[in-house]
Each structure stands twice: as structure tokens, then as C-alpha cells.
């Protein structure tokens, strides 16, 4: 009989602890060993909190299991979970990511009373007329004139932005921010984009050329991959 393989390996790094959970054993086994290891190595009361990265390798955990791990490591111990990383994603998550990150191209005029809602980024080749509305969970690019309402990041993504060839909207909405056109008649602007300015805490309109400085990652997919 071989010596029992270590299921949990803990490594100390500069940022804290990294905790590797063996990917081939059963979840129950891992949990049992994890409990012992954690109790053995938890910091003492007078020591500072330690952040922990959990690496799962090719193991997939559902939300309930992640919760359980979180409770074991966190709980009354002086650990803080920094992240739980897995090398695998579920098929449906991957598909959803893909959908969220795709640019949906629509070629039509959005007329008064019409609404277009998409997941991911929206590329509209055509106008949004007054009274029309477009909405997406990602960015909105309009090759045409925007005179109606556009809502980017409708799921709450504050980094989303709205770019249009001609911009004279009645309202711009990004995540939970809303800005509306002034009460006086105003001319629109060409090749501009609307985005949230954190310092002013409101939606601002800027030249398209300014966009690269403010939004490094155009693609929603890259953004989501990096943020986990």
C-alpha cells in the first residue's frame, strides 16, 4: 500500500496562502482533509488576517460547494478567501460568456415605439429614431444617428459605453446611470461616445479618440475573463 497521497497542499506566497485541492479525489474526502489542515495552520488571534487563493485544477464546483469550502476556510478562522479558481468552466457558462461577448450586428432602423434588446455588445447599422430604444448588456456601437434612447450595460456593467456616428439622444443610460438631453433644442455631435466618468459620477460625452485612454478593454469577453 502506497502512502496516502496529500489531497490538500498549502503553499505560502508573498500575498498569502495558495491552497491546492487535488483534482482526482472525491469532494467529501477533500473536505475532510481540508478541515484538518485549516485548523492545524490557522493564524493565531494576534496575527493579521491571511488571504487565501484556492486552486481547484480540473475540478468543477457548483455554488453550494464553493460556499461550503468558503465556510470551512473562512468561518471563525482568520483566513479571507481571495478567490476560488478552477481551470474548467461549465459548457453553459462558456456559452453564456460567448454570447455576452459576441457583437450582435443588426441592420435596420429602430423607429419610434420599437425596442431592441440584446445580450453582449450591439452593433447597429442604422439609425435609432426619436422614440426608439436600444439596450444591451455590453457596449453599444451605432453606425448611424442616435436620436432615441440607448442603454448600455443593462445588467449593471458600469464600464460599458455607447458610441455613435451621430449622437443626439433623448436619453443615455449606462448601468444604473441616466442622463437626458437638455430642455433646449440642441444639435447633435459626430463620432462621439458616452461613458460613465467615475470622478464626476455621471455620464459624460467625449470624442471617440478619447476612448482608448478611458477603456482599455473594448471587448466584454476579455473583461469578463480577467475579472473571473
Amino acid at each position: 500500500m502506497l502512502e496516502k497521497k496529500q489531497l490538500i497542499i498549502i503553499k505560502g506566497t508573498r500575498e498569502g496562502l495558495t491552497l491546492f485541492i487535488d483534482e482526482s479525489c472525491s469532494f467529501e474526502e477533500a473536505v475532510i482533509e481540508l478541515k484538518d489542515k485549516i485548523i492545524a495552520s490557522r493564524p493565531k488571534r494576534d496575527e493579521p488576517l491571511v488571504s487565501v487563493k484556492v486552486k481547484l485544477g480540473n475540478r468543477y464546483l457548483d455554488e453550494a460547494q464553493k460556499d461550503q469550502i468558503g465556510k470551512i476556510i473562512g468561518g471563525e478562522n482568520r483566513f479571507i478567501i481571495h478567490s476560488i479558481q478552477s481551470d474548467v468552466v461549465r459548457r453553459e457558462d462558456a456559452l453564456r460568456w460567448q454570447e455576452d461577448s459576441e457583437v450582435k450586428t443588426i441592420n435596420r432602423i429602430v423607429r419610434s415605439g420599437q425596442v431592441i434588446e440584446v445580450n453582449g455588445d450591439l452593433l447597429l447599422v442604422g439609425d435609432v429614431n426619436p422614440g426608439g430604444k436600444v439596450s444591451s448588456t455590453g457596449n453599444i456601437y451605432i453606425m448611424g444617428s442616435l436620436q432615441g434612447i440607448a442603454h448600455a450595460g443593462s445588467d449593471g456593467d458600469r464600464d460599458a459605453f455607447i458610441a455613435a456616428s451621430y449622437m443626439n439622444p433623448s436619453q443615455l443610460r449606462i448601468a444604473d446611470y441616466i442622463s437626458r438631453a437638455p430642455d433646449y433644442e440642441s444639435d447633435g455631435v459626430y463620432m462621439e461616445c458616452g461613458l460613465i466618468d467615475e470622478t464626476q459620477d455621471k455620464i459624460i460625452i467625449d470624442r471617440l479618440q478619447a476612448l482608448p485612454h478611458k477603456r482599455k478593454e473594448l471587448s466584454g469577453f476579455e473583461r469578463r475573463m480577467q475579472n473571473g
Partner: peptide, 16 residues
């Protein structure tokens, strides 16, 4: 007039 153009736009959308 704006109101009439707005309604025409709506109607065109329905006709399309």
C-alpha cells in the same frame, strides 16, 4: 411637425 413625424415613424415601423 415633430409630433406628426414621430407618429409617421411609428406607423412606418408597423408597416415594415
Amino acid at each position: 411637425e415633430k409630433s406628426s413625424v414621430r407618429d409617421a415613424d411609428r406607423i412606418i415601423g408597423l408597416l415594415e
